[in-house]
Computed example of a mutant assay.
Amino acid sequence: MSNALVLQSDFGLSDGAVSAMYGVAHTVDPSIPLFDLTHDIPPYNIWEGSYRLLQTVPYWPENTVFVSVVDPGVGSDRKSVVVKTGSNHFIVTPDNGTLTHIHHSIGIIEARIIDEQKNRLPKAGASHTFHGRDIYAYTGARLASHTISFEEVGPIYSIDSIILLPLFEASLSHGVLTGMIDILDIRFGNVWTNISRELFLDLGMQYGDSAEVLIENDNKKVYKNFMTYGRSFADLCIGEPLVYINSLDNLAIAINQGSFAEVYSIGTGSNWRISLRKAPKIIYE
């Protein structure tokens, strides 16, 4: 029985690109369980592609094969790889930074360069602009269907050679917690950070306490204000900002029934920093 094959790309669904990848997979084996992670990664946004893998991969059964195609360097000399993660999943992708979050948080235990002489869609022609169809979907389907083993993907690739995007580690110093904005909860405009719940609670925060929040982009202040630490959005009135713990057990901030990211033009990446400190309680006499 084939393992699940999960596709991610920045292709969108307005043309036939994703459907062509489906077709290639089903041509390899019509019984492959085929799913989408997302095809709405902003064009060329390798960072977001990297994070969406981390957000999703751990919740799938072991040996699931992921194909991730966010590939602004298609046709260049960048490597095409398949990696086995510390969680026993496989990821088929260009080696361009897409593996950053997986490498950092889950780990990669082995990597192989795709042998494109053996693992390229037959009769694909001379095109070098649709590797998502001709190499990644094809190789991913062959791996998921057990047509090839991981060892048959191609030669071993040094894990130390994998290209990684810069990250900024969260830390707590002198009562100030600092991290980066990892990603946006796109549909609702919430801001997700890389600050773990455990590190946040080291501030001594309790539900209902206030935190002073500072957001900077390349050291330029974008936002500074006080907000309440809430268990959920229902703890605050509509329109109020809050600090909360998101579904990945990390710190996030939001506006109840509003888009914090849109209101304050928030972005993502290691140059977007967030700092918090516990606000002192004011006692009126």
Rank of each mutant, 00 (worst) to 15 (best):
Ser2Tyr: 04
Ser2Lys: 07
Ala4Lys: 14
Val6Cys: 04
Asp10Cys: 03
Phe11Leu: 12
Gly12Gln: 03
Val18Asp: 00
Val18Ser: 01
Tyr22Val: 14
Thr27Ala: 14
Val28Thr: 04
Asp29Tyr: 03
Ser31Ile: 12
Ser31Val: 09
Ile32Glu: 00
Leu34Thr: 04
Asp40Val: 03
Ile41Pro: 00
Tyr51Asp: 02
Leu53Arg: 00
Leu54Trp: 09
Tyr59Val: 05
Tyr59Cys: 03
Pro61Ala: 09
Glu62Trp: 14
Glu62Leu: 05
Val65His: 03
Val67Asn: 04
Ser68Arg: 09
Ser68Leu: 10
Gly75Phe: 04
Gly75Arg: 02
Asp77Leu: 12
Ser80Leu: 10
Val81Asp: 00
Val82Thr: 13
Ser87Ile: 11
Ile91Trp: 03
Val92Glu: 04
Thr93Asp: 05
Thr98Trp: 00
His101Gly: 06
Ile102Cys: 07
His104Asp: 10
Ile108His: 04
Ile108Tyr: 01
Ile109Trp: 03
Glu110His: 11
Gln117Gly: 15
Leu121Arg: 03
Pro122Ile: 13
Ala124Leu: 08
Ala126Asn: 10
Ser127Cys: 07
Thr129Arg: 09
Thr129Asn: 05
Arg133Lys: 15
Ile135Leu: 12
Gly140Pro: 02
His146Gln: 08
Thr147Ser: 08
Ser149Tyr: 02
Phe150Cys: 07
Glu152Trp: 08
Pro155Cys: 05
Tyr157Thr: 05
Ile159Cys: 04
Ile162Thr: 02
Ile162Tyr: 00
Leu164Asp: 02
Phe168Pro: 02
Phe168Tyr: 13
Glu169Met: 10
Ala170Val: 15
Ser173Gln: 13
Ser173Ala: 12
Thr178Ile: 06
Asp185Thr: 04
Ile195Asn: 02
Arg197Asn: 06
Arg197Met: 11
Glu198Gln: 09
Leu203Ser: 14
Ser210Asn: 10
Val213His: 00
Leu214Gly: 07
Lys221Pro: 08
Lys221Ala: 15
Val222Phe: 10
Tyr223Trp: 08
Lys224Gly: 12
Asn225Ile: 10
Asn225Cys: 06
Phe226Lys: 14
Gly230Phe: 08
Arg231Thr: 08
Ala234Asn: 07
Cys237Tyr: 15
Ile238Thr: 15
Ile238Gln: 09
Asn246Leu: 12
Leu248Glu: 11
Asn250Tyr: 12
Ala254Trp: 05
Ala254Gln: 03
Gly258Arg: 02
Ile266Gly: 01
Thr268Glu: 10
Ser270Thr: 03
Asn271Pro: 01
Trp272Gly: 01
Arg273Asn: 08
Arg273Ser: 07
Arg273Cys: 02
Leu276Tyr: 00
Tyr284Thr: 14
Glu285Ile: 06
